[in-house]
Design a protein around this nucleic acid. Structure first.
Lengths: 205, 205
DNA sequence: TAGATTGTTAATCGATTAACAATC
DNA sequence: TAGATTGTTAATCGATTAACAATC
């Protein structure tokens, strides 16, 4: 609810949430200055970002950490459990299946699928790798709405289309390829070799 | 050389580079419109971005793909080989060591280190996992300037400090923790659970 | 009250894009 | 020449941040 939160703010909210988790041990209250310090941003920006969630701070005092965490979780929609399917049980896909921290955020890896016969049936962090041909069935039966693509780039659009047709509403694409999203589906991309390319630029001077 | 390239442009250049690689098979020339289509951005933006590299296009014709690739590689500093050390031989670190595409871009994984005795000596994609205690020696002897951190978040700053003290100039941090960079060191962060958090937000409507 | 810190305004800064003259 | 496409300007849009009144 409330108005649209700017995308730059949405991108910072999960970071604040993690910073707050780290702080929670020490005190029950914190300030925009302290959050800014830990998150590595400007304190005015923290206040501005938090103001989109409504006013939950107390002037002269700061923010109650637990309450603020709850508010951020609510704003991001991290309140209920989200089922996730990982497509691709290669190195990256397996790394993700094992990735701690997903659970802490209310994400639950429901399935890992792969097209490679060899990999089907293997265990990946307690999950059995299932067949790519069952993808639609898996997504529908388990009401999964988030998909993570960790396949070779050549098949990314194909996989994405199948996911979206099956009802997936959000896709995190870790392969170096662009996805044309269907109407109403949001796609995020993380490309590690791109990140390294950016790093090289800064190495120059 | 030339003036500072805006950071948003730098972040897009690696993407253009990959799009151009895909196109190179079919034709020897391309247009800002075609690149924009594949990269998923506005064509005026492509032209603007490319204009920071100098004028390498031909009005009425377009860009020579091979020449443009060379120019982008040069602008990003991808012309010489960059040595990389990966800290952390867990799932993510191993996935990275195996990550194809790094080599194509002029990156060479020179070492994978881990603090866990159990993992030392294991093979990861042709590399033998080395001991974390040799980190400084490895970085200095092999003149490595890029580090990738794939450790638990608790030790990130410690590892980063050791890397920076040893002479690392660019760090890609894949762990969910903030690094305070030393003067002249650039740090980029990719946090997969943050990405998933952002995805959850878009799931709401 | 005095000190601290929020919430918000308004200025600034930077990034995107429509439009079009230049030119192949 | 006619058609195509660049390179660049200028308008627009959105994001950042300094500053400060509000208020605990």
């Amino acid at each position: 609810m409330s108005d649209r939160i700017p995308s730059a703010t949405v991108a910072r909210l999960p970071r604040y949430l993690r910073c707050l988790s780290d702080m929670a041990q020490e005190t029950s209250t914190t300030s925009s200055e302290a959050i800014a310090e830990v998150a590595g941003v400007n304190s005015a920006q923290v206040r501005k970002d938090l103001s989109y969630l409504g006013s939950h701070g107390t002037r002269g005092v700061g923010y109650d950490i637990d309450e603020l965490r709850a508010q951020i979780r609510k704003a991001l929609g991290l309140v209920s459990d989200h089922g996730v399917v990982i497509v691709g049980a290669g190195n990256l896909g397996s790394a993700l299946a094992n990735y701690r921290g997903f659970e802490n955020w209310g994400f639950k890896i429901d399935a890992v699928v792969d097209a490679d016969e060899q990999k089907i049936g293997r265990q990946v962090d307690g999950l059995v790798v299932e067949s790519m041909s069952d993808l639609e069935k898996i997504v529908e039966e388990r009401s999964i709405r988030i998909g993570i693509i960790a396949t070779p780039p050549q098949v990314v659009q194909l996989v994405a289309d199948r996911l979206m047709d099956a009802g997936i509403k959000s896709i995190l694409n870790l392969a170096p390829a662009t996805i044309k999203p269907h109407e109403g589906v949001s796609v995020r991309r993380v490309d590690l070799s791109t990140e390294l390319g950016i790093l090289a630029y800064h190495l120059k001077r």
